[in-house]
């Protein structure tokens, strides 16, 4: 019986090491919820900057004045999104560090580097693509493009972290496609993808791993 216990422990060791050494695990559900909330706040600010309500289509036409980017509204809107992006990234990093400490795992190791590299490649491509859209004046496609590339990035990184990220990625891609189809409501789809989906995902992760 003793021998049996030993074998069982050996198998448990193997499972833990296989998972721990190949996947980045300290992703926090709470940070998903917080990031979702920041995205909703960001969208609300965007709508009030543009001075329209959420049923009004064609938000992107307000950013153009005689075919040129509006010098009054566009910089404010850009600042809104950039500030929220920085806050969201810091939230994610801070919460991951907190959770790693709690789980007694290193926060910056080979798994973290591998996950971030795989996340970064589609994201950088997406960032450049959005700059090209901006340069070509295709303003209405920028918001859904951020969803598409973010979804592809998550899908790509999901091999190196918790499995649930894969489903979030697929949902973000779908939202991005719908947002491209109904580009007049791009901001709403952006709020759905970065806001609502993150909150739902965060709650699921929280209940599954942190409760």
């Amino acid at each position: 019986m003793d021998k049996n216990q030993e074998h069982l422990e050996a198998i448990r060791d193997i499972r833990t090491l296989m998972e721990r050494s190949s996947r980045f695990l300290p992703l926090s559900g709470l940070s998903g919820i917080l990031i979702g909330v920041w995205a909703l706040v960001c969208t609300a600010i965007a709508y009030s900057l543009l001075g329209i309500s959420i049923q009004d289509p064609g938000y992107h036409t307000l950013l153009l004045e005689n075919g040129q980017l509006s010098t009054s509204k566009f910089p404010l809107l850009l600042a809104d999104f950039m500030v929220v992006l920085i806050i969201a990234l810091s939230t994610g990093m801070f919460m991951a560090m907190r959770k790693a400490k709690k789980m007694n795992l290193p926060v910056w190791d080979a798994t973290a580097r591998r996950m971030l590299t795989n996340l970064a490649i589609p994201l950088v491509a997406g960032g450049l693509y959005c700059l090209i859209l901006l340069y070509r004046g295709e303003i209405s496609l920028i918001a859904p493009a951020t969803l598409l590339f973010y979804g592809l990035a998550l899908l790509n990184a999901s091999k190196y972290t918790i499995n649930e990220m894969r489903f979030l990625g697929i949902l973000e891609i779908s939202t991005g496609l719908l947002g491209t189809l109904f580009a007049d409501f791009g901001l709403l789809f952006w709020a759905l993808g970065f806001g609502i989906l993150h909150i739902v995902y965060g709650i699921l992760i929280y209940y599954k791993y942190e409760k």
Partner: peptide, 26 residues
């Protein structure tokens, strides 16, 4: 040996791993 079991477990799921990372994991 538990250590060898551990080394092999890690190398089964990672294409390669360097010495310091192995040391940290084990």
């Amino acid at each position: 040996s538990r250590v060898r079991l551990g080394i092999m477990s890690i190398l089964m799921v990672n294409d390669f791993m360097d010495f310091p990372s192995l040391k940290e994991q084990l």
